[in-house]
Amino acid sequence: MFKKEFYKFKDVYLLLVVLITSFLAYLAFSLKNMVQNFGALDTNLSFLFKKKFTFFHLDDMNLVFAFVIAVFVFFHERINGRLRLSLHFPHSSARNIGFIIMCGLLFVFFVYFVEIILLNIILGAVYAKEIMYVLNYSLAFNYVFGFLLYIFCCGFIIEPVKKRAIVNFIVMLGSIYLYYEINPDIYAFDSFYANDFGFYYMGIVALYALSAAFIAFDNYKRGYIK
């Protein structure tokens, strides 16, 4: 079953992991250069007082990663109505649906998990723990939104009613806008901790994304095949 899920996105997964690794390496080398040129003190101070830090689009890449994996996961189920097969495996429908959603999500989670550990090793060697808290909070927010984007994809790829699929897509775009307003890259923050309340709003967005996903599966099962 894992293989069945993994093979849907195997190639693109590996490609994106390579890309994320490259972004991570670029961030690490940039930081190393900054420390070599200006010293760790200046690096810390310029973070504290000028918000001089960027993830070099690694955070954007994380979102793209989750989104693309989700597109592959759910499109493969939609092609030729393969979802009909997946729903017929001898388990409850909830389990069959849960497996389709969670399997890809687990692969995304794995990359995020490894990434945050590496980032903590790389950045934690230079930045004070108070700064690391800000960075980790921002990254955690980024990952959670990545998961949400993944679930959003279900809401517009599986959803067979075109009108609703479009609405779900628009709400996803609105959520992306909201996400970047609340949790932009560090240098673009209006203030540190601007994302303090962000998880509450992401919670509301999660409610929508999950509802949309389950409604989509339900609609599909009720017969809006094609």
Binding site: K3, K4, Y7, K8, H76, N80, G81, R82, R84, L85, H88, F89, P90, H91
Partner: peptide, 17 residues
């Protein structure tokens, strides 16, 4: 479900496997 064998029109399956 385990007692039912389904064949979909066009031999739908996981062709990527």
């Amino acid at each position: 479900k385990s007692r039912i064998g389904l064949l979909y029109e066009g031999y739908v399956t996981y062709d990527y496997l």
